[in-house]
Design a protein around this nucleic acid. Structure first.
Length: 488
RNA sequence: AGGGGUGUAGCGCAGUCCGGUUAGCGCACUUGGUUUGGGACCAAGGGGUCGAAAGUUCGAAUCUUUUCACCCCUACCA
């Protein structure tokens, strides 16, 4: 059938691409590396966005919007920052086209060359800090807690739907503070919010930690990350929050007068999560039948399928059930399409990952029952019509918890403590996952391990335990274990 | 960016090596009928110029060159 997808065990990447397409999340576009996010995929993003946005606002942040373009000179003001992004920038050089004098079509008008090239933002620190210079004069202007929902462009060589696209949607928070500790607290607060969102809403457990020097954001003094484990044993960096120190304040000369009327540079944080989260969601829960969505984020939580088709008497039985569910705030869809048969619809909704499907026919009416099918376990049960809405409501909560529990179990089954490079390689080759190993803290050892195994340090975990040991690579003294994995 | 692979109808594919008349198949789609508790069946239809461009040839999906896109493995990165 047209809807079949590759099994995960046969080809995980192909399976992933199949899910994205067949579940109707996204399509390739005419533009290299850029995807079209289809309504179903976008609905998922809107749900994530709504929740994150409210979490940001609850903690005092406000939204604003800064330009898509950044003057080239801005980018180079912070040395590490430009170094990190220079290789992947889209550059606007002209502002006009003209009819092709030598044939059909249009060509770039050479007389319309820009005085200074514009960079399509790969991230907005520079344009925002340039702006903050005008906004911040006094300690009374601080803190400045601003977020923007935007698109950015990073010209990556190899793209994959949601995980890495040339253009992607994200939010980027940019905050300014009077003190170092306040900026650090902000970065940690957001780190915490990201982790909470991942676990409570996406049912995707994450390891919270700090990046090593080598993996740190270009221009940051400290990068906090949440790292999730995908079903194929690879890690996904799902969100980062950066303590920027005074780097951008110094680069853009942003100073404020403190209460003693002394000038100081502003302290900063920046943080972001992107549509990549959708990729993480797919690779945390879905199976060979298709997408599996956590109820809290599913665009539709319940679908009701009349069996064998939407006969008037069956629809009469269904209608109040749907109403009761809606009254409880459940996102429910009644499928009244009379062209497709139930079996076809079942497969379709399984592909779309709708958490609960109710199958209702005359037989159920006669028995005063409802057939309840769970997407995550693929189990079905007959439930009494009385109190069905409450039952479903509870079941949604149960499914949300089950998905998280499963993902946690998978993660603990795929987290291995190793003490030698041999073990390290062996684990990586056989089951993958997170590897807890001693590391001496040097970039040299980190690079050498990457060279030998392709695994990188995902993070120095927040729950880092002080423990005497020897670096798996160098044998030098180590203060504790850090998290290694191959990553997306 | 280096290596490998693939582009033929909405999807999945055959045909390409050994050029030859209107380019095939399954699913999907349209119409009619029969069906209907896990992807229905029968019949009749519609749709592609073979990723794009240039070339070789009497003749190109098929050969040559260029180019674009996508996929996989590296490298780079959210």
């Amino acid at each position: 059938m047209a809807k079949e997808i590759t099994n995960r065990s046969d080809d995980y990447s192909l399976w992933y691409n199949n899910i994205v397409k067949k579940a109707g999340l996204a399509d390739n576009s005419a533009v290299r590396g850029c995807m079209v996010i289809k309504p179903y995929g976008f609905a998922l993003w809107e749900n994530m966005k709504a929740q994150l946005d409210s979490m940001f606002k609850e903690t005092g942040h406000v939204n604003a919007y800064f330009p898509l373009f950044i003057p080239k000179s801005f980018l180079s003001k912070e040395a590490e920052h430009v170094e990190g992004f220079a290789k992947e920038c889209a550059v606007v050089t002209h502002h006009r086209l003209m009819n092709n004098p030598d044939g059909p079509g249009v060509v770039v008008d050479p007389s319309a060359k820009l005085e200074e090239e514009l960079i399509v933002r790969p991230t907005s620190e520079t344009i925002i800090w340039h702006t903050y210079k005008d906004w911040i004069k006094s300690y009374r202007d601080l803190p400045l807690l601003i977020n923007q929902w935007a698109n950015v462009v990073r010209w990556d060589m190899r793209t994959r739907p949601f995980l890495r696209t040339a253009e992607f949607l994200w939010q980027e928070g940019h905050t300014a503070h009077a003190t170092k500790s306040e900026a650090m607290e902000e970065a940690k607060l957001i780190h915490e919010i990201y982790a909470r969102f991942a676990e409570d809403w996406m049912a995707m457990p994450v390891i919270k930690g700090a990046k090593s020097d080598r993996e740190r954001f270009a221009g940051a003094d400290e990068t906090f990350t949440i790292e999730a484990l995908m079903q194929d044993g690879k890690a996904l960096q799902a969100g980062t929050s950066h303590f920027l120190g005074q780097n951008f304040a110094k680069a853009f000369d942003v100073k404020f007068s403190n209460s003693e009327n002394k000038e100081e540079y502003v302290w900063a944080s920046s943080w972001g999560v992107s549509t990549r989260l959708i990729g993480g969601l797919i690779m945390t829960h879905s199976d060979d039948e298709g997408l599996v969505l956590p109820p809290k984020l599913a665009p539709q939580q319940v679908v009701i399928v009349p069996i064998p088709k939407p006969l008037p008497e069956v629809m009469e039985y269904i209608k109040p059930i749907a109403e009761e569910l809606k009254a409880r705030g459940v996102r429910v869809k009644v499928d009244d399409n009379d062209q497709k048969r139930p079996g076809f619809k079942f497969a379709e909704y399984e592909m779309m990952g709708i958490p609960i499907r109710l199958g209702i026919g005359k037989r159920d009416m006669a028995n005063n029952m409802v057939e309840v099918a769970r997407r995550d376990t693929k189990t079905k049960e007959l439930v009494s019509r009385e109190g069905i809405a409450k039952h479903i409501d509870n079941l949604l909560t149960e499914i949300q918890a089950a998905l998280l529990a499963n993902a946690k179990k998978f993660r603990s089954d795929h987290t291995t403590v190793v003490d030698t490079m041999e073990e390290f390689k062996e684990v990586l080759d056989t089951k993958g996952g997170f590897i807890m190993a001693h590391w001496d803290g040097t970039t040299e050892s980190e690079l050498a391990i990457k060279e030998a195994t392709n695994a990188t340090i995902r993070c120095i975990p927040n729950d880092f335990v002080e423990e005497e040991g020897e670096c798996v690579f160098s044998g030098n003294k180590s203060k504790g274990r850090v998290v290694f994995a191959k990553s997306y």
